[in-house]
């Protein structure tokens, strides 16, 4: 069975390491915060100027001056810091953020990503995504394997305007964990109950499959 959004987030949370500073994008990536493994300390960065994002506030405590990059009300944990947007992107551009998790419309075999514009239909802007993918040490894409119409999002070459080139290192989808290698997509794990064949069929780009592919361990 393919994973739901929380399943994807839970699998990505396994990539976190003690001491990491992490930027989580809007959508599925935000959910990763709910699954940080016990016993490790991870600091979440929000590019609008907060290091140390806390849980969503109680309704009575929601503060219009305290939001995340998705413009949702949040809280700040003890020991957090506020700063301006130039400082925030200095952290990002300067390589001080260990991991970025973001969504995508398309990811290509060479690690290119499209995530911000559908010409003639939707223009929301790139926000901080281009800065993040150009600079973070490690970039994981969180997405469904196919779009609503069943079209693969893991493709040979991006067709939509690019967000960044050759930057994605790993993709965690509802069906699989795929690494982006110099040779292309490499299947490393399957979602529980999903076969290699099903993943191949849902992947437009060439998929390297070597030996037995284990199921994700989400317990």
């Amino acid at each position: 069975m393919a994973l739901d959004k929380n399943g994807i987030a839970k699998r990505i949370a396994q990539e976190l390491e003690d001491g990491y500073y992490v930027n989580l994008g809007i959508g599925i990536p935000t959910l990763v915060a709910n699954f940080i493994p016990e016993g490790i300390e991870v600091t979440l960065q929000s590019e609008n100027g907060l290091l140390g994002i806390g849980p969503f506030p109680k309704k009575a405590e929601a503060d219009p001056d305290l939001i995340n990059a998705g413009k949702q009300t949040v809280t700040a944990l003890p020991g957090s810091a506020f700063f301006d947007s130039a400082e925030s992107f200095a952290m990002i551009r300067g390589g001080h953020i260990d991991l970025t998790v973001l969504g995508a419309f398309e990811v290509a075999e060479n690690g290119d990503i499209s995530s911000w514009k559908i010409p003639g239909k939707m223009v929301k802007g790139m926000g901080g995504a281009m800065d993040l993918v150009a600079a973070a040490k490690n970039i994981i894409v969180a997405t469904t394997h196919t779009d609503r119409n069943g079209k693969s999002k893991l493709i040979k070459k991006c067709t939509l305007p690019l967000t960044g080139v050759g930057c994605v290192k790993k993709i965690v989808t509802d069906m699989a964990v795929v690494e982006v290698t110099p040779q292309g997509f490499k299947l490393v794990e399957r979602a529980p109950g999903v076969s290699v064949e099903e993943i191949k069929n849902a992947t437009e780009g060439a998929l390297i499959v070597e030996g037995d592919i284990p199921e994700m361990n989400l317990s």
């Binding site: 947007s85 992107f89 223009v123 995504a129 281009m130 800065d131």
Partner: peptide, 22 residues
Amino acid sequence: FERQLLEGELEVDLIPQGTLAE
């Protein structure tokens, strides 16, 4: 905004957020 942009009523330069800040 999206309507004015798609119909060409408004000139828009979209810039990466960190680049804009810097």
